[in-house]
């Protein structure tokens, strides 16, 4: 299964979510995407979107520099 990183640092809502969705459209089921974001709102919104549309949240962590690392697995 492939892994992909999308760097959306510096972008504001709904930029990170849109970048995640645009990338997920070209991924295969089972592939994993790590979204990097400095937008706290997106850190809360992305898991909500993932849950709503039926993908899988793998992990969400904020590093010491304030960047959120949001890992999502494409489930369908």
């Amino acid at each position: 299964m492939a892994e992909r990183t999308v760097d959306a640092r510096g972008s504001f809502c709904p930029g990170p979510l849109m970048e995640l969705i645009a990338n997920m459209k070209s991924m295969q089921v089972g592939d994993t995407l790590e979204l990097l974001s400095t937008d706290a709102g997106s850190a809360a919104d992305v898991p909500e979107w993932v849950k709503k549309v039926g993908h899988e949240m793998v992990d969400t962590q904020q590093d010491s520099e304030g960047t959120w690392h949001i890992k999502v697995r494409k489930a369908k």
Binding site: G10, S11, F12, P14, G15, M18, I21, A22
Partner: peptide, 17 residues
């Protein structure tokens, strides 16, 4: 002043995505 996505680009994403 900030890197907020322009409204027109967001409308494009609404249509495309």
């Amino acid at each position: 002043r900030h890197q907020v996505p322009p409204f027109y680009q967001i409308f494009e994403q609404a249509v495309e995505l």
